[in-house]
Structures are given as C-alpha cells and as structure tokens.
C-alpha cells in the first residue's frame, strides 16, 4: 500500500495556493506537511480526499496502490481522515459511532469487530455511552478507531492533536502513530507543531 501524489496544484479562483506538489508515501510511513496557517495544508488534504469545497479547485493525480483516484468519488477512495475535533456523531452512541464505518455484513460479525476495537483502545463496556460523556482522550481514541475500522488504504491527519491538552498530547500521538504503522497505512499529517513530527519522519514545508 502506498499513496502517491503527482503534481498537485490548488487554486482559489485565480489565486494559486500551492503548485506542483509531488510525493510518495510508503506503507506505514508518516509524512508531515508543515506550514503557517493559510498556506493550504487543509486544502491539500481536502484535495486528496476529493472533498474540496467549490470556490477551490485542484489539479494533479492521487494514486493509491497503483490506482488513480483523481476522478473517484470521495466516499469510494478509502482514504480515512482525522480532524482537530474528534467529530463523533452526537446522536449515536460510542458503539454506533464505531459501527458506522464497518462494512456491511452479518450483525454478529460487525458487533464483534466493534467490541474488539473497544478492547484495543481500553474502552470495554462503553459502547452504549453517549460521546459527550467521554473524556477528551477517550473521544480521540474512539475517533481513531472509527477511522481504522473502515479499513482505509491511506490516512490524512489534519492537526488531530492540536486541541488536546499537553499531558494527553504525547500519549495520544504515540498511540495513533503506533496503530497506523502497525497496519502499514501510508499517512499524511499536517501540523504547525514540530513536536508532532514522528521520529526520523520526513517533513515537507509548504
């Protein structure tokens, strides 16, 4: 599994945001894109996900495992995303949030996957809780696991640790990276915090 970006440029109307960005991310590699706010980091991620809002547009190619994804609908790209906010769906329980991305199939099998996932993030027995009753760290872990349960071929992280308090940050960060590397998922991280860069990870400045 690898994620290849070929000459991606993004524009807002006639204004160029960034130009001709090419990059290959190997399986399990986490590449960091750094830049000041307004430099187009989030635009890059939206372009890769295929979810760029209308005044923006992007050109270039997104190749995932050898398949060109540039024209594929966002929901069929199998590219997972984590955001600054955990974005757990407020009207669904923790368990239902996890089930939301699990592929269709027999109910017992899906439930089993959900319970295993809860076990892996040390939240056994919390499946019927409402998201807002969880702590910030717990919610981050649920959001991560929800993204992983959909079995993404690549992952985009949009400053997912920036709203966590300092004590929690390092733990959740290491935890997230460990899970992504274990599953050999190519990952693109945008951040403006040097602490977020994984050890010996590649860094690109825009």
């Amino acid at each position: 599994m690898s994620l290849v970006l070929e000459k991606i440029s993004a524009y807002l109307g006639d204004t160029r945001i960034f130009e001709s960005l090419s990059l290959t991310i190997e399986p399990g590699e986490i590449v960091t894109v750094m830049g000041a706010s307004g430099s187009g980091k989030t635009t890059l991620l939206a372009a890769i996900a295929g979810d760029l809002p209308t005044p923006f547009y992007a050109v270039g190619k997104v190749i995932l495992n050898g398949h060109d994804m540039s024209k594929v609908r966002p929901e069929q790209r199998r590219i997972g995303r984590l955001f600054q906010d955990d974005l757990l769906f407020p009207h669904l329980t923790v368990g239902e949030n996890l089930l939301f991305g699990v592929e269709r199939g027999p109910k017992a099998m899906r439930t089993m996957q959900m319970k295993e996932a809860l076990q892996r993030i040390d939240l056994v027995g919390l499946e019927n809780r409402a998201p807002h009753t969880l702590s910030g760290g717990q919610r981050s872990r649920v959001a991560l696991m929800r993204a992983l349960l959909a079995k993404p071929d690549a992952m985009l992280l949009d400053e997912p640790f920036s709203k966590l308090d300092r004590a929690l940050r390092a733990t959740i960060r290491d935890y997230t990276y460990a899970h992504l590397q274990e599953r050999k998922i190519p990952t693109l991280l945008v951040t403006h915090d040097f602490e977020d860069v994984p050890k010996a990870g590649r860094v690109i400045h825009v």
């Binding site: 939206a46 996900a49 295929g50 979810d51 609908r73 966002p74 929901e75 069929q76 199998r78 590219i79 997972g80 995303r81 955001f83 906010d85 974005l87 769906f89 407020p90 009207h91 939301f100 991305g101 592929e103 929800r146 993204a147 959909a150 993404p152 985009l156």
Partner: peptide, 28 residues
C-alpha cells in the same frame, strides 16, 4: 460547522451524501 465535519468523516468512512443525510443530518 458540525455538519461540515460530519460530512467529511462520513465520506471518508465510505458513506454517500444520501446516506449522510439519512443517517447523520436528518436524525439530528
């Protein structure tokens, strides 16, 4: 703001816009 975030998550988890309306937006 919430719905924009939920749309991005829903799409990244493989749901169509129709499904996002049915399962995320309308119930709220």
């Amino acid at each position: 703001d919430n719905f924009n975030g939920q749309r991005a998550v829903g799409l990244s988890l493989g749901h169509t816009m129709t499904s996002i309306w049915q399962r995320l937006y309308l119930p709220q």
